[in-house]
Amino acid sequence: MTVRIGVVTFPGTLDDRDTQRAVRLAGAEAVPLWHRDKDLKQVDAVVLPGGFSYGDYLRAGAISRFSPVMETVIGQARDGLPVLGICNGFQVLTETHLLPGAMLRNESLHFVCRDQRLRVENAGTAWTTDYTGGQEIRVPLKNIDGRYVADERTLDELEAEGRVAFRYLGGNPNGSLRDIAGLTNEAGNVVGLMPHPEHAVEPLIGTGRTDGLGFFTSILKRLVNA
């Protein structure tokens, strides 16, 4: 069986090609999805890649949320479709309220671009089973609107339910509350994170490691075994 993973391109998306490549390297078929298209082409999972969709006008991810493709993605994600949001994709997921909280301008007000150490806090989601809980990985991070915020009650709930999927190590790059780098929804099918696993899938480029490949192999195994 060929697993088909959709990669959405919004106007202003930057990392769709890298994401498609990561999907292929993991052994799945990458299916390009267009923002104006409601049809998801019967994909088994969807990745919302990084970039500056719709110019990040209004708020990062705010306009993408109302695009035709997201109408379908939101509905199907609620029914269990695996969805991974990376960077701008994570921002879209918070704007759609598929994940709680919101993203704001980095506390430093600077664009931050660096290799970032992360701790995998939840290795039980659809996108993280090829990691182990507590594992440390290193992937690139590049953002200016990466400060995760939510109210204290929401943060406590997320912690108690194990829904903080990734945490920053070695310095918080953007002022995210409780060093949160990534989240999962309750069901574990929707995951969002600010750093970029798709840029760390080949030894030749990026961090020189392949720490990010696990996202794509995790979902592949999950779908093959489904």
Binding site: L58, R59, A62, F66, T94, E95, P100, G101, A102, L104, V149, A150
Partner: peptide, 8 residues
Amino acid sequence: TFLANTVI
């Protein structure tokens, strides 16, 4: 629903 994100 759009101009403000009432989470923040």
